[in-house]
């Protein structure tokens, strides 16, 4: 029997539903030395800002029971350098390329979108959910009004399909998702990391210079799953689910909860070959269960 891993995300086809999550996969180049990254359904770029960003100083990582806290602070080469240097390399992989866009102000978001308009990207993921920068970004994603406003402004000029990435720290993530849909979003992705912290009791100080950081990994999976479930029931645009996916079974859980695509983040650090293994695991599962298309299991829970 031949099963079909292809997924339609609105009009765009993905060869399978497994996508590398922003910030955990660079621009794909390093992982392409581990396995052929075009095995994946798509790759999401590191979060891009208008100008190059140095990122946060101090410790950037702290391990927690079954999770990690990160405080990278959106270190990236800036959108122009991305378009000039990274995107042409990414486009050589035969897979969908998504640019993750973060900003401190509405103006910054809009300028980045303009810079990306004439490129051959497949999709933009509007990051209104990063907890690791002092200004903007996640601040846009907490309330439904500010989220809807930024989406509306971006949608007005954006020539690529626009997915909006939400924060689990939203006051009401279901309402934020619905307001993004109403503002014209083509899809929703969730969740970004949870705002979290750690204390160094010897130094009697917060571990991170920014005090707060972002929690990801298996520790957040049950909550992420619940949020994906609720949001995908509440909107009619497609949903990208993520948060703590460690293996193909977790991916199936998110799909059954309603996700069209899933993203894998922290697991890339735990096992650099995870992407390849999850695609293969999903395929074996579908063959064994006689599932011909992902559509048969999406949202059945």
């Amino acid at each position: 029997m031949s099963c079909n891993l292809r997924v339609k995300f609105n009009h765009m086809e993905f060869k399978n539903p497994i996508v590398a999550a922003s910030g955990t996969f660079g621009f794909g180049e390093e992982y392409n030395e581990v396995y052929e990254v075009e095995t994946l359904g798509g790759i999401c770029s590191k979060g891009l800002t208008l100008n190059a960003k140095e990122g946060n100083s101090g410790i950037r990582l702290w391990e927690t029971p079954m999770g990690i806290l990160n405080s990278i602070g959106m270190e990236n080469p800036g959108v122009k350098e991305f378009v000039r240097k990274e995107l042409p390399k990414m486009k050589k992989y035969n897979t969908r390329i998504i640019a993750n866009v973060g900003g401190a102000t509405e103006e910054e978001y809009l300028t980045i979108i303009e810079e990306l308009n004439d490129t051959d990207l497949d999709m933009i993921e509007l990051n209104i959910s990063c907890p690791n920068v002092k200004e903007g970004c996640m601040a846009f994603g907490i309330h439904e009004k500010s989220a809807a406003n930024i989406v509306k402004q971006v949608k007005r000029i954006c020539r690529h399909p626009l997915v909006v990435k939400l924060t689990p720290n939203a006051e009401n993530i279901v309402k934020v998702a619905a307001s993004c849909e109403a503002a014209g979003a083509d899809g929703i992705s969730l969740i970004n990391t949870f705002k979290a912290m750690a204390v160094d009791i010897e130094k009697r100080k917060a571990v991170f210079e920014n005090v707060y950081a972002g929690l990801s990994g298996p520790a957040i999976k049950p909550i992420a799953l619940q949020m994906v479930h609720e949001v995908s029931k509440a909107v009619s645009i497609p949903v990208i689910g993520m948060g703590g996916i460690m293996n193909w079974k977790d991916a199936v859980e998110f799909i059954m909860a309603g996700a069209h695509l899933v993203q894998i983040g922290t697991v890339n650090f735990v096992n650099p070959e995870a992407g390849k293994e999850i695609v293969l695991g999903l395929q074996n599962y579908m063959e064994k269960e006689g599932i011909k298309s992902i559509d048969e299991i999406r949202g059945i829970v």
Binding site: G26, E54, G55, S57, L61, N70, P272
Partner: peptide, 21 residues
């Protein structure tokens, strides 16, 4: 430096040098 990926993708291990990050 603390490391997550070990291969240059996650920017956990960034250090500041005279020639930039």
């Amino acid at each position: 430096s603390r490391m997550a990926c070990g291969i240059g993708a996650c920017l956990t291990c960034t250090c500041h040098t005279k020639n930039g990050n």
